[in-house]
Design a protein around this nucleic acid. Structure first.
Lengths: 199, 199
DNA sequence: GTCTATAATTAGATAGAC
DNA sequence: GTCTATCTAATTATAGAC
């Protein structure tokens, strides 16, 4: 039995950091609070990650790794039928992912709004590959208008979950219920890729 | 000539606070930095607003006051024709407002994500009136699906401006150019309220 | 009404014990 | 590999001069 459970500890810290940073923002959470959530001491964060900034990078990597896995899975499960089916699958998957992981959109909005080292790293390392995947899957749509269509889709599919708390307070309805997620997925898919016989 | 230019100073501080809080977040900006941007001393903030939290409330009030004025103006300028025209005007106005004032969406997302005193105040004081206006204007759409349609529209109309910096870094295109704003407005209006002869 | 000076607290990072 | 203790700097809020 190895006594050096450093990998587990590292993972625990990254998970706690990701949740905490999403909830309170990078400046809104202290390394002490993150350490407390991960049930370790504050000094240990500096041992595993040399700075709060490095911990932020690790949390972002972890989040996008998960996102990439789930999108690959969803797209490969859509047996290569006609492009429309693939596009609708992609849109539904964006809804489902945003519903389960609103932290991604929060992360992007909070850290992407200003031109900083972090925003450039985020775009270059993690966003561009996804954006290029998106454009290649959507390129056959005759009058597709990029980048408008991209941000319309991301905003339409994600905001209700990104603002889930606000939605509950404002409307009394919980957008993260199974039924609401499904409704939202169909709504977005129909809006952006209407059924054949409608066009 | 009155020597007590406290109203001007107050306004200056509120403006500086709104911009700064939008850029860096409530926790990301210090009262000293806000004071520096307003060209006053830090102590003066406590004189005019008893706390950083009170300054935040003042900044939010200021922002929503402006939003309400602009929406009233836009909607009253759309001479009461058929509902579709009013709806399209509302959507275009949302795009134009988000383009000029991305701070509103930032504010809502950052301060609405967790259930706090601030988020409840924001929803009850400023969001609900707008949401009710929205639903009454959209209620004649036969199969409107609230709250999905609301968040789809807000997200679709606003995210590209909320993430304007990211959009520039990612795509090289500036979504805040006059042409891009107009394109986005038409895109959103057509998507959500298609022309009569299409339906 | 505005400023300077400062008190009390908390932040991120480091040093060294175990 | 993990913890406790501590350093330095920055935070909000206050007190008092002008």
């Amino acid at each position: 039995m190895k006594r050096e459970h450093s990998e587990d500890t590292r993972r625990q810290i990254v998970n706690a950091a990701l949740i905490a940073i999403t909830e309170a923002g990078f400046d809104g959470i202290s390394t002490r609070q993150i350490a407390a959530r991960a049930n370790v001491s504050q000094g240990l964060l500096t041992y595993h990650f040399k700075s709060k900034d490095a911990l932020w990078h690790a949390a972002a990597d972890h989040m996008f790794e998960l996102a990439n896995i789930e999108f690959e899975k969803a797209l490969s499960s859509a047996k290569t039928k006609n492009p429309r089916d693939i596009q609708r699958t992609l849109i539904r998957q964006m809804v489902y992912f945003n519903a389960e992981h609103p932290e991604l959109m929060h992360f992007m909005i909070e850290n992407g709004k200003e031109d900083t080292e972090r925003s450039r790293w985020l775009v270059d390392t993690h966003c561009r590959p996804f954006y290029e995947k998106f454009t290649s899957l959507m390129s056959d749509i005759p009058d597709i208008d990029l980048p408008h269509a991209f941000y319309v889709l991301v905003g339409a599919s994600g905001l209700i979950f990104c603002a889930a708390n606000e939605c509950r307070q404002l409307t009394g309805k919980d957008p993260t219920s199974k039924a609401a997620i499904k409704r939202h997925a169909e709504y977005c898919a129909n809006l952006l890729i209407p059924d054949e016989h409608h066009s």
